[in-house]
Design a binder for these strands. Structure first.
Lengths: 199, 199
DNA sequence: CGTTAATTTGAAAATTTTCAACGTGCGTGG
DNA sequence: CCACGCACGTTGAAAATTTTCAAATTAACG
């Protein structure tokens, strides 16, 4: 959250200077959209609570989930280079977030610190890859471990995950089928590698 | 190349101010490394000619190819947030590139345009995903189409590809086996969807 | 409760991997 | 120049994984 706080502060400063609204805390129910692919990228979105999926419709018309995000992550940065968002951002559960107006990157000196911070945030993404390769079993395990580590990284209990996404969405993300995900999960359960409670 | 030229110019300017070496055109043979994962990220690399793979060694000790890059692309930007490179950059053939010293992002006003340009470059990456999902056949096709489109995008003939990477490297990138890649390629060849010449 | 959506499970079909063999091009040393 | 070894690519066939299709269970919700 550190980087976001810095960034928020910087943008607030800039906003004050240019009389643009700075930030707003919002809350939306599951299924609702934070921003749509292709629409003008005017803000970035800092998640405070809940889980968001980034998703897009492929050329053949089906959904392709690109990533999942939770508290502490900032979405919508891809809009910079292209002026529009690259993905739909959809709330998977009840999501609380801050909308931070994207400063126009017009290379004015006052924005140097903002740009610098953005570069830092953007480049972080390259370190967290997409779904892993290998067998589906390995992909599912890597998926769970990633969720766990990200949770632990924020000081929470990484051993107790509440999956905000459906099997369908996990399968889509991992590039496999819902039945296969289910089977692997149950398999891991039987091996006592994990424990499944409720849905 | 437009963005790079702008960027190069900007960095040169900055370099003149701070008396740091600005840029250097280099050339390396296949197999040689532009930069190593984990080492201090001091420069970014603009490819002028040839093909480079970004690759890393996974926890279990095997190679994982993250992407392929050709003329007009800039590598090493991920170093910003972490001070070190995230991947090994390895030349697949004879590669010509420019090394551009990464300005320390210290938020000084003179660097605002540079940062702005970097943000633009970085965010572009989110629009070009990793390997596609679906069957291997689809992945191979998507891989070839991507190469073709990237070539065409630079004004070259997109119908005539010279694959700088081995079957092994394609397989690794697509998350499959060398034999499977070979079979799909031959299959496409038999269907007259593509034509394979030489190695 | 009753109805619907989501998940699990089973078994056959399809895809992909594995293992083994074969071919080809290329450079080295004889 | 030729033979040899070696890396790379191709091909075949059996084994393993994954998908598909169908049905059974379970969870969610009014």
């Amino acid at each position: 959250m550190n980087a976001i706080c810095r960034l928020t502060g910087l943008i607030a400063l800039e906003g004050a200077r240019s009389r643009r609204p700075t930030t707003a805390l919002r809350s939306i129910p599951p299924g609702r959209v934070l921003f749509h692919a292709g629409t003008a990228a005017t803000s970035m979105y800092a998640i405070r609570r809940g889980t968001v999926k980034l998703t897009r419709i492929t050329a053949d018309g089906d959904e392709e989930i690109q990533s999942f995000h939770t508290a502490g992550e900032v979405l919508g940065l891809e809009g910079f280079g292209h002026e529009v968002y690259a993905y739909d951002a959809v709330a998977l559960d009840s999501v609380q977030y801050c909308e931070l107006p994207l400063p126009k990157m017009d290379a004015s000196p006052t924005q140097a610190p903002i740009a610098s911070e953005l570069v830092r945030l953007l480049s972080k993404r390259f370190w967290r890859g997409g779904p892993s390769r290998g067998s589906i079993r390995e992909r599912v395990i890597a998926f769970l471990l990633d969720l766990s580590r990200r949770r632990a990284g924020r000081g929470l209990d990484g051993l107790n995950l509440k999956l905000a996404m459906s099997r369908m969405e996990i399968a889509n993300f991992l590039g496999t089928r819902i039945e296969t995900v289910s089977r692997v999960l149950q398999q891991l359960h039987r091996e006592h590698a994990i424990q499944i409670r409720g849905s």
